[in-house]
């Protein structure tokens, strides 16, 4: 008996409410007052959205002092569930000793999961805020190092976010 729902006593409608028309006019007043409220629509191509730092846009390589941070360990390509990343390593005279000769992300395969960013030991691949990706040919969708390298100071937001939340 304890689980029994409480009985709701609904009042009968007043004759004034049963007459419909005053209630309808009241409703129309509310509807019409909405017309003059500010609109929520964003006029998209003209009015761009600036995503928050937690946004996962297209993955990019961080460029510091003119070279990429990447040491071509291949972890990102290993963890990528969509097999979108292709890395080919080589040696270099720099302190980091290894660098990627070829670093390609197939943006038609990428699912923006952010695993590559999570697994990267050097903080060399991060998710940017770019989300407008359009291609005319399948070949255009494979982004090489020329498109992937972004200077570190342009990615400050995301790098700070990662420091704070990892």
């Amino acid at each position: 008996m304890e689980n029994q729902k409480p009985i709701i006593h609904r009042k009968d409608l007043h004759w004034w409410e049963l007459f419909y028309i005053p209630q309808i006019i009241n409703g129309m007043r509310i509807t019409l007052s909405q017309v003059f409220r500010p609109k929520f629509t964003r006029q998209y191509p003209e009015e761009k959205w600036n995503p928050p730092s937690s946004f996962r846009g297209r993955p990019v390589l961080v460029e510091q002092n003119g070279v990429e941070r990447c040491v071509a360990c291949g972890l990102c390509s290993r963890v990528c569930p969509a097999l979108a990343i292709d890395v080919q390593a080589s040696e270099t005279e720099l302190l980091k000793e290894r660098y990627p000769v070829r670093f390609e992300i197939n943006m038609l395969r990428c699912i923006f999961c952010g695993f590559c960013e999570e697994v990267c030991p050097e903080e060399a691949i991060v998710m940017s805020k770019e989300f407008e990706l359009v291609f005319r040919h399948q070949e255009d969708a494979i982004f090489g190092k020329d498109k992937l390298l972004i200077p570190a100071d342009k990615l400050k937001d995301r790098l700070e976010f990662l420091r704070k939340n990892r």
Binding site: T31, L32, Q34, V35, R37, P38, K39, F40, T41, Q43
Partner: peptide
């Protein structure tokens, strides 16, 4: 247009 305005759209 009017229904959009009523729903706070454009």
């Amino acid at each position: 247009r009017l229904s959009a305005a009523i729903q706070n759209r454009i």
